[in-house]
Design a protein around this nucleic acid. Sequence first.
DNA 1: TGTATATGTAATCGTTCGCTTACTTTTTTG
DNA 2: CAAAAAAGTAAGCGAACGATTACATATACA
Lengths: 93, 93
Amino acid sequence: MLIRNAKEIGVFVRERRLKLKLSQAELSQRVGVSRLWIVLLEKGKPTAQLGLVLRTLNALGLSLKISESTGSLQPGKIDLDKLLRQRTGKGVL
Amino acid sequence: MLIRNAKEIGVFVRERRLKLKLSQAELSQRVGVSRLWIVLLEKGKPTAQLGLVLRTLNALGLSLKISESTGSLQPGKIDLDKLLRQRTGKGVL
DNA sequence: TGTATATGTAATCGTTCGCTTACTTTTTTG
DNA sequence: CAAAAAAGTAAGCGAACGATTACATATACA
């Protein structure tokens, strides 16, 4: 499944945990975090620390694959201010 | 590529950034973080916030896929203390 | 070669993480 | 139904995040 944001990870984590018949308490101990942290992660906490998230995925037997997404990389909102800031007057645009 | 820890993400981010010929400064602006944060991320900062990491991957045209890792989920270090704590004396082991 | 440009490091600072504890609400199960 | 287990919520606190600023080192390139 493609992951775009924290909420999607949260959903996936919860479903996997339930599939494994683990309680939040059980999982939290395996991962080494508080139960509250698991609650928040499953709710899609975007400020959760990367390392703890990865440990959680490992504990659940989930794996992450990273790859170049085919197609145009995030169109990248043209920001005139930025363009001007960039390298003053070297003929951008 | 399989991602197991923060360092692996860091390496992948850096390689991708260079492939796109972006400076750390450019990337940091696109993502909306400080340049220092990019430096640390590329070094494998495990405490980086999940949301910022995902935004960075998007900005670089990278996508994450999550899936059940075939085989035995993380063997799960047998922790006697935990087993005992679990449900006292309901015949674990 | 020297000079911009990119990258690495350090220190300070306000904000927020994640932990603990305690309590409530929901779900399970005997 | 009653009791237990699981899950949600709140408050307080120390620790660490990420931003900013400043300077040092590397790399590019004219």
